[in-house]
Design a protein around this nucleic acid. Structure first.
Lengths: 250, 250
DNA sequence: CGACACTTTGAAGACGATCAACGCCGGTGG
DNA sequence: CCACCGGCGTTGATCGTCTTCAAAGTGTCG
């Protein structure tokens, strides 16, 4: 049983949507709470996949290394996000990346078998699982598209937009939640490129000084970012931005 | 009912694996056979997703256009491959790309609802569907990884390897099955880059003259292609190559 | 033969990676 | 209190790769 209080973000996790409070509690009882120190490895690339993880608080970095020594950050996970559900239907149950804690991080881990069993018992959970996998696949597609078609500046701008939304920051002024090296790695570019790019963004609607970010022209940035992306209609960022803009004005 | 003879490739389609002959026949009866002319559009980017498709013969190009006019080929489908199963669990049932026939192409189309109904009736089909979606997601990941980390030459070499395997060509000599423009677009590079790259591949184990390809040093090419890829352990191409090498020697 | 689609080749340019040097800052130890 | 250090970020110069623009070559089909 988790021996820590689960923040409400867990209960609003899309994976548990549609389940009753009681069901959720019962489910979560199957998990084990763990605390990771800064820099601690949760699992390594190539390890067998044994668990499904739920991040409660803190930050987790997923990264991989290619033979020539290059390191690529595949994802940065924060509280409320999940990890490992995609591997359920994979043939080879091998971790596709390393997972390491960027800071002190609380997670709850569930044995993979437990997830499978419960997916069979709770059709709703099974459906959520599918939706989640499908969504991740979709996101991966979009990300690939972005990496191919967008310039470094567009990638950075897009990242800042999404970060602002994900963390619920005020676009008019917020601090970068991660180190610049980490962000650069996440965006698949060198730290130098990232650094230089930040300066150039001022011409496009985002001002960055040190770790402080101000998105002062949301419309311009959005047009700039989306101008070379071919999947605009269902871009989640765009929708959220519209939403936010509405909320702040209304 | 399909009014054409279905080649045996259809029956060996992974989606129908584990189903009895009778079940397969019953399923396929729900489809409508169609023939597409060279250049004919099957559906356009943004259209509502209405059907699931099975390519019988010919070649289908999936491509998308970004606002700045750039065209990217997402996939080239040949006989035996399927199209549209991924969209089942998607929230927005909108085609993510255009589909056009490169040459005269035979397809069988099934209403999406039909697929859903049958997935509920046949657990095996449902499972196959999931596996298919999961696999496509996995492939997309690998492809994204490739696009990011590999040079044009490596991408081309990798493509030639995979093409050789997919079409069951003899590595020692085969003709390119598609136009160079199409291949370049599929690899996300300009025709000029592709053209120039072909020449340079001779140093790495592949000789190309006109449309004729000779993979004369499979080991060298494989090392060259995989040297900067971080997901080597479960690379399907690598496994198939080993297999083929064994078969030809044994 | 000429029109046209497809491909090749050349030259210039843009972009990001790489290498190198430096600035900034927090911590540690004398 | 200061000196030193290491982690992190910035800035400059250079280089390789791919794109872009332009021109010419190859082939097929009427």
């Amino acid at each position: 049983m988790p021996n820590i209080a689960l923040p409400k973000t867990v209960k609003s996790q899309p994976l548990f949507k549609g389940l009753s409070e009681a069901e959720q509690d019962a489910l979560l009882r199957g998990g084990r709470s763990r605390q990771l120190e800064r820099g601690q490895l949760l699992f390594a690339h190539g390890d067998p996949v044994t668990h499904f993880y739920l991040v409660i608080s803190g930050t987790l970095q997923l990264f991989r290394q290619s033979p020539d020594g290059h390191e690529k950050t595949l994802a940065i996970l924060i509280g409320g996000q999940t990890l490992g559900e995609t591997e359920i239907f994979e043939v080879s149950k091998i971790q596709p990346a390393n997972a390491v804690a960027i800071e002190i991080t609380h997670i709850v881990e569930f044995p993979l078998q437990w997830l499978l069993d419960n997916a069979q018992k709770h059709p709703v959970l099974a459906l959520n699982l599918l939706a989640s996998i499908s969504e991740q696949a979709h996101d991966a597609q979009i990300e690939a598209e972005h990496q191919c078609n967008m310039s470094a500046a567009q990638l950075v701008a897009c990242f800042l937009q999404r970060t602002c939304i994900l963390h619920n920051f005020d676009p008019r002024g917020f601090e970068l939640p991660y180190s610049k090296s980490l962000i650069a790695s996440r965006l698949g570019m060198e730290l130098e490129t990232f650094s230089r790019t930040l300066g150039k963004l001022r011409e496009h609607g985002i001002a960055v000084t040190g770790t402080h970010v101000t998105i002062y022209d949301m419309q311009q940035i959005e047009d700039y970012v989306c101008s070379s992306c071919s999947i605009v209609e269902d871009c989640p960022t765009r929708q959220k931005l519209v939403e936010i803009a509405g909320r702040r004005q209304g």
